[in-house]
């Protein structure tokens, strides 16, 4: 590893190796569990803290834009720690020459999304770099939330837990890719970018025994499930036929040679719940507008640790491997 390659940013094996070797080796917390949000104890409160950068190209795509992504992405990361999102920061790196109207449209979208998510954007920063030193605008958001249910972590999935997916997969990644490459004109594929505050808060308020949550962004549900299986040292089995995929998304993925399980989502959550509460959780999730198509897609098994398998639509079983060397840069 001599230079940064695009595949180091794709959410797969290369990125994990890079983070381990460069950052964690130097300043990683030895007790770290590897979730999307860190949590810190402050007096009697536990806070969740996370940050994320957004470099999506194009800035506006069907179903969303970089501003909506920047808010929803960080909000959803806070939610994975079972935290109520409280405040966000937003920093902008802008390329010389960017139209102010574009920035205004992005800021407006952030306002709307933050209101929907129930968070306030309370601080930020702007930097301008010469033309060519960045592409239009990059946004970094950070967020703080209040943990409502302690212990929810990718490391806390247990055998026999049920795995709920809150809706269809592959929408965001395919929508952005098609918009960028101007492929398959007229296909109605929309990004699912959305903050899931309402959906997750309902679950927490009604006392469901949730063990783990993860928003399957880069690397799709394949990456997210493998992470949880590895962190929790459990196995998982997913039923392919139960994973909702919009027909247009399925067709686009077939045509482009993409594995829809590895394609990014920006408004979905994988929720690992104790078996006794699975039906109740599913019912609550389905009440929320972003969870109408939620399904139990599989369950947690005890062994072999870290292994995720798929029961295919024809009834056979195969490995669900995390993506590697993905070639869909700048999807979020």
């Amino acid at each position: 590893m001599k230079r940064i390659l695009l595949s180091h940013g794709a959410g797969g094996r290369e990125m994990t190796a890079l983070i381990d070797e460069v950052f964690l080796a130097r300043y990683g917390d030895p007790n770290r569990v590897g979730d999307d949000s860190a949590t810190v104890l402050l007096g009697s409160h536990r806070l969740a803290f996370t940050t994320d950068s957004f470099v999506v190209d194009p800035l506006f795509f069907p179903g969303g834009d970089i501003g909506r992504l920047a808010v929803a992405g960080t909000v959803n990361d806070l939610l994975t720690a079972a935290a109520r999102p409280l405040v966000l920061s937003a920093s902008f790196i802008m390329e010389e020459g960017l139209e102010i109207s574009v920035l205004q449209a992005i800021a407006e979208s952030m306002r709307v999304t933050a209101a929907e998510a129930g968070v306030a954007i309370v601080t930020g920063d702007t930097k301008v770099v010469p033309k060519g030193a960045a592409d239009k605008v990059f946004i970094t958001t950070a967020g703080v939330g209040l943990v409502l249910l302690p212990g929810v972590s990718g490391a806390a999935a247990r055998p026999r837990d049920e795995i709920i997916l809150t809706g269809s997969v592959g929408d965001h990644g395919t929508a952005v890719l098609l918009a960028r490459e101007k492929l398959l004109d007229g296909e109605a594929i929309m990004s699912d970018a959305a903050p899931l505050t309402g959906l997750v808060m309902n679950l927490l308020e009604e006392g469901c025994e949730i063990h783990a949550m993860r928003d399957p962004t880069r690397g799709g549900i394949a990456a997210a499930l493998n992470e949880i299986a590895r962190q929790s040292q459990v196995a998982m089995e997913i039923i392919e036929a139960r994973v909702p995929v919009a027909p247009a998304v399925a067709a686009a993925c077939e045509a482009l040679g993409l594995d829809v399980f590895q394609v990014a989502n920006e408004g979905k959550m994988l929720i690992i719940v104790a078996p006794k509460d699975a039906a109740k959780a599913l019912f609550i999730i389905r009440r929320s507008p972003y969870g109408e198509a939620a399904r139990v897609i599989g369950r947690v098994l005890d062994a072999p640790p870290g292994r995720v398998t798929v029961k295919t639509v024809i009834g056979t079983a195969r490995l669900l491997d995390p993506p590697s060397g993905d070639l869909l840069p700048r999807i979020c």
């Binding site: 594995d259 295919t312 024809i314 056979t316 195969r318």
Partner: peptide
């Protein structure tokens, strides 16, 4: 491979 055809 994706459909694990070899197993059947």
């Amino acid at each position: 491979a994706r459909f694990a055809l070899k197993t059947i």
